[in-house]
Design a protein around this nucleic acid. Structure first.
Lengths: 144, 144
DNA sequence: CGCTTGCTTTACGTTAACGTAAACGTGATC
DNA sequence: GATCACGTTTACGTTAACGTAAAGCAAGCG
């Protein structure tokens, strides 16, 4: 660990991915580590870039989409027209992410609901069981 | 439209997908329409199922994952052990969805930030431009 | 009757995102 | 000096989720 730079396997370990994956990202042009005697060396910036790509993946973005968003970070867009179109693309992205969050919340609510049903069913099951147990112990009375 | 049932192309139109996609879902066993003289007929329940699958897709779930969650809706799980394990799986799902939402929110924040930078840059650009225009009009004074 | 529209099945093609394997090059170490 | 651990390149394989094309049936219509 050359102080402030990382080897490929260090990053792979940290992110729980394979070195193949990282090389693949480079192959696709999503990251550009420098070489030190044939070996890849990653800067902290490279590291963050990979981290962001993985975050994008987790929310279902393709690699290309993730990178597209990440590259918005360093506008470099000098002229006003470019800046304006960038703002537009950001708006589109945000709209999509918002809908995605709505879908996500809906699914979370559904899960809560289903869990509620399960718990209720378990309750019933327990009630029945204890009733049966009582009945077996002294078969005489059945809810009054 | 046979009152309360749908043809394949009706659903395709409604959801903005192709008939091939719907047939593919059937091929994979994710939905089971009945046949009416060789033609597929979809019940409202089938429709909802497809809708939910598509919702899952939008948040980045695989078809199989979506279906797994959807199938939690009709537990049918009669015994307590099954119910308990279902609750467990729900908890896992929820945990993952929550992380996903965190990632999503982070990305939304980033987009807001970038948009702010863009707007600032645009402001500067406009300020420069109007300053230059003023200078061209009467080249004498430069901010006092 | 022939044509169009809508549906069917079968089957091969495609893209993304890697997995997996082979064959090789470096030090470091036993 | 052989064996690791770690890295490299090249290249073929794999899975999911469809796309696309071919060939054919059935109903309605001018």
């Amino acid at each position: 660990m050359s102080e402030g730079s990382y080897s490929i396997s260090e990053l792979a370990r940290e992110f729980g991915i394979t070195t193949r994956t990282i090389r693949f990202y480079e192959e696709k042009g999503y990251v550009h580590p420098r070489r030190q005697g044939g070996q890849r060396r990653y800067t902290p910036a490279d590291r963050v870039r990979i981290k962001l790509i993985l975050r994008g993946k987790r929310i279902g973005l393709s690699l290309a989409e993730s990178v597209e968003i990440i590259d918005m970070y360093e506008p470099g867009a000098s002229n006003a027209a470019q800046l304006a179109s960038l703002i537009e693309r950001i708006a589109e992205r945000r709209a999509r992410l918002l809908r995605q969050r709505a879908d996500l919340d809906a699914m979370l609510e559904s899960l809560d609901e289903v869990e509620g049903l399960c718990r209720d069913a378990l309750e019933d099951r327990r009630a029945e069981d204890s009733a049966r147990a009582a009945a077996t112990a002294s078969p005489a009375r059945r809810h009054a």
